[in-house]
Design a protein around this nucleic acid. Structure first.
Lengths: 339, 339
DNA sequence: GGCCGCTATGCAAGCGTTTCCAGATAAAGT
DNA sequence: ACTTTATCTGGAAACGCTTGCATAGCGGCC
């Protein structure tokens, strides 16, 4: 393997000068820089990542922790973050936690702490006080997406407000009999999204004087399949709502599919809407609130990179990411007979 | 930051012994091992990743290159690989290439080659002869998934055979008027999957004496949305096929949605099947050929890890991954009037 | 009882960079 | 002409581990 020494030799320079020439730090005469560069490329030399990380303390690597790349929202965030990092010359180390709680633990103690990342992006992950402190102790800036991280910088959307906005969209169309598909309790522990969206829904209903019927609040696991099953149950009930607001697009899609299987037309017989901005939304005509997941991923990266290059500690700011109501064809006025 | 020195001091041992105790390599008395361990945990010590990589030459890190984590198949592979790696104590560096050709190039020269990974998994990516040689030159085992990598170990499914099997399933039900949704030409350049599946389809049709109608072969971009549009076009045609075989589940799903929007019942009016084993398949009752994407990811990891630990070069073997025909409710005998 | 072979340990030499420091040279100021 | 200041350069000390080599202990063997 050719090292920087070989390059120095070939260029007739010292190792130190070559290092400076190649990294662009410190002053080097244009002539030397050029000689270093050509020598390096002639030899096909590439810096040893570990050696330079060890010496400089910079890893040029960001850790991204997600529950599951298999779910739409997370993979969108990964895409956004990945592109931004690649652009900046950074590597992305992915920690796909999965269901396994043991994984989560080992990611923390064995991986994240091993000084192998310059920064961490945690998506929909609630970290304990002590975990955050460990991260702080090793001076790793961290930004959270979609979850409240006490004392860390976070990017998120105003879940209560958008749930309200979504509900109001339905109410504005004339619906009063609205059901809500929320997330299972388990998801609420880790991360309060289902509860927050649900409370936004309830507030809007109350404000409009619409009754919130407990049997019309069902929960699922945020997947299309899960919501499909839940929606079937909901629609099989005695009385049927005229609209369903699902806490995520995937669950809204599950609902639409269930409705179709019941012979219900969307939106004629029943309106459905979600939150996310899922790609499938266009095909299904899903009305939703787009939260620009990719953009959130990219923003997280830029925030971190800023902090890294400035060396400034990331302040614990809560950045509100903009959302956008996208009205398509899954919502309409309620059927006439449903007065 | 506490280093291994501090641990050694606290444990009353030498740095060397602590290193051996913690890594499990070399012989250490049970007593010393215990002392090293407790000292380490008391100090909250974690090995410096870069220092140990530099010293040992092992990075405990695998690079995974995919076109886009946003597509079902790739994210499933990532999930499978990720879990297997986490289990083995390895990190996963994700290179999400995306559409951008420049990214692809820089991933190669700037990232992969910097000795920062022990091995590489390339998914649906055709590497040039010289790229492969570069990788070999730095002694990095590589395994490919779903794409032929000359001179590298690959895991894949027999695309021709399963396309044939899928087509035969439809033919076996009595269909003769079968359409095929393939991938765009662009995808075929990088990687011959669409062409291979298509030829399997054509072979099966020919063998059965069924005519292959050019206007019934349409192409899409492997997404649900893309196939939806393509299928609409297909179904709007003069004469309608009684069955559609899509080259991927995502495209099959797009087809089902399009069929429904045309008022066609699946499978009564039209049968649809795909290839993949997409999660949504259960909800939509999609008949498919499950190719166990997660399993392929995990298998790739185990193959690599085997090679790494044995130090043996990975032979250029082509491993056939098993597939499984899953018959659900999207396929049935053709409608009676379609003779 | 002396010797062999084994395990357990420590010393110190790397691993391949970056960067501090100091020296050297050249330009600029007085 | 001589000091001051700025720009370049090289030597060498980190960075924090792993591991080859050498040594010390120790039970078993003839």
């Amino acid at each position: 393997m050719t090292g920087i020494k070989d390059v120095a030799e070939r260029a007739g320079l010292s190792v130190a000068t070559v290092s400076r020439a190649l990294s662009g730090k410190g002053s080097v005469s244009p002539a030397s820089r050029e000689r270093a560069r050509t020598a390096a490329s002639e030899l096909g030399f590439v810096l040893s990542y570990h050696a330079s990380s060890l010496a400089s303390g910079r890893t040029h690597n960001v850790g991204l922790v997600v529950p599951s790349v298999h779910r739409w929202f997370f993979s969108a965030v990964v895409e956004g973050a990945s592109a931004a990092l690649l652009e900046a010359g950074y590597d992305l180390t992915l920690y796909n936690i999965g269901e396994n709680a043991a994984h989560r633990q080992s990611v923390f103690s064995d991986f994240l702490l091993r000084k192998r990342v310059d920064a961490v992006i945690a998506v929909s992950l609630e970290l304990s006080e002590s975990e955050l402190q460990q991260l702080h102790a090793v001076h790793r800036p961290i930004v959270g997406i979609g979850g409240p991280l006490p004392g860390a910088s976070t990017i998120r959307i105003d879940d209560t407000a958008i749930a309200r906005q979504a509900t109001n969209h339905l109410i504005g169309l004339g619906h009063t009999k609205i059901a809500h598909i929320t997330g299972h309790e388990a998801y609420d522990q880790d991360f309060h999204l289902p509860g927050t969206r649900r409370s936004g829904f309830e507030k809007a209903m109350n404000d409009a004087g619409c009754p919130v019927r407990p049997e019309w609040i069902v929960s699922a696991d945020f997947t299309i399949e899960g919501a499909y099953a839940a929606a079937r149950q909901l629609l099989a009930g005695e009385e049927r709502p005229t609209a369903v607001f699902a806490a995520s697009d995937e669950m809204a899609i599950g609902t639409i599919l269930a409705a179709r299987d019941f012979g219900l037309r969307v939106p004629d017989d029943i309106s459905v809407m979600g939150i996310d901005g899922h790609d499938l939304g266009t095909v299904l005509g899903l009305t939703t609130i787009d939260q620009d997941a990719k953009g959130q991923g990219a923003l997280a990266v830029h925030t971190l990179l800023g902090a890294i290059t400035n060396g400034t500690a990331l302040e614990a700011a809560d950045t509100q990411h903009p959302t956008r109501l996208v009205v398509r064809t899954s919502t309409a006025v309620p059927p006439a007979d449903a007065g």
